[in-house]
């Protein structure tokens, strides 16, 4: 695995706004997060709009042949990726609540998530 030795630590934010499975964006975004973990940067994930569907619990892709990458979210803490934020407005607009999600997240309204945007330095959108 490639290691970063620049000594620079930046605040990365991954903004996830797409639903899983219909397209590969969410899946390949998660691959970026896993690789990024090796670089010892400050990492946060924000799930906004349809991105909240990525965290819906009980996903089973046996019938559609795609990879069930949703299980990987549960392993993120082993990679020291612990800052997962879900936008409250997006969750509520989709009739979902915290109990519907597969992992521990912090649910914040956009007015609070804004602060995370303010602090972040590098934005990746998938």
């Amino acid at each position: 695995m490639e290691e970063q030795e620049s000594g620079i630590i930046k605040k990365f934010i991954y903004v996830n706004r797409k639903a899983p499975h219909g397209t590969i964006y969410a899946h390949e975004a998660l691959e970026v997060v896993l690789i990024a973990a090796a670089f010892e940067q400050d990492v946060a994930l924000a799930f906004i709009d349809d991105g909240v569907y990525q965290l819906k619990k009980g996903q089973n892709t046996d019938g559609i042949a795609t990879k069930n990458f949703s299980k990987t979210f549960g392993a993120l803490d082993m990679y020291d990726v612990e800052k997962l934020y879900v936008e409250k407005e997006s969750l509520e607009a989709r009739g979902l609540s915290e109990e519907d999600l597969s992992v521990d997240v912090e649910i914040l309204p956009a007015s609070d998530l804004k602060n995370l945007f303010n602090e972040s330095e590098v934005f990746f959108n998938f």
Partner: peptide
């Protein structure tokens, strides 16, 4: 090359911009 090259770009570049869907 690996995805590390993307992360490295995020670290080293002054500005990062994405063109996508």
């Amino acid at each position: 090359s690996g995805l590390g090259q993307l992360i490295e770009a995020g670290i080293q570049a002054d500005r990062m911009i994405t063109f996508g869907d």
